[in-house]
Amino acid sequence: MTAPLLEVANLRVRFPTPTGTVEVVRGVSFTLGRERLGIVGESGSGKSLTGRSILRLIRKPGEVTADRLRFEGIDLLSASEWQMRGIRGARISMVMQDPKFSLNPVMTVGEQIGEALAVHEHLPRRQIRSRVLEMLEAVQIRDPQRVFGLYPHELSGGMGQRVMIAMMLIPEPSILIADEPTSALDVSVQGEVLRLMNDLITRKGMGLIFISHDLHLVSQFCDRILVMYRGRIVEECAAGELDRATHPYTRGLIASVPRMDETRAELPVLDRSQWEQA
């Protein structure tokens, strides 16, 4: 395999609080090639912060340190803010959880998608328009001409998320970070959105970091899975081998999900005391 797209070693995120510094991400290390990497964990396990710190989106007074945080040979920690602006959106982009809160409500869909192109590549306006329309078609929006002029509140959840994906993929980044991209969507729409993301990613040979709390989804969708608990990676495995996971936390998480052919009278609940000391 060629050199990894992204190398992360001993990543730590800290926040000062009145009662002392809290370390939320405690020494996370992984590498990402052109693959689909899933990060799973509960709320508060630090999975979203890991995603955000790659793009250096953690604001003061939060503090990010790492032994290594390199993307295609660039050290992300020492890069200037100016350099980061060239990376964010253009070479690493991020899809957020809820399209309702992450689209600009006073800009039309077309303008928003085009903005990413206009900022990172200098193209004539007509060309931008045609690229945006192409992209809208690629994310399977039926009537791109009409949707181009719509405002975000006129879109359904599934359409909004497709617009987000279009916006993130149009500059053709090398890495896409998707933070719970389908949690706000229906089961039936989820499938479509994921398939779409998958197609675009494999076609363009991108790396994907897929952050989710849905184990089943991640095991179906990704190549490799990291399980995070309390700011640490407790387990790493290939997606197909999730049922052979060994860490008690992972096993507990798998067992607590109801199945379609559920006959258990009670769902097992995580007993945190077991591995808390570890």
Binding site: E42, D214, P258, L267, V269
Partner: peptide, 14 residues
């Protein structure tokens, strides 16, 4: 809710 918390609430409801 998270899956692990979901299990607790579902057990409670049951």
């Amino acid at each position: 809710l998270d899956v692990s918390v979901q299990a607790e609430i579902l057990n409670l409801l049951k």
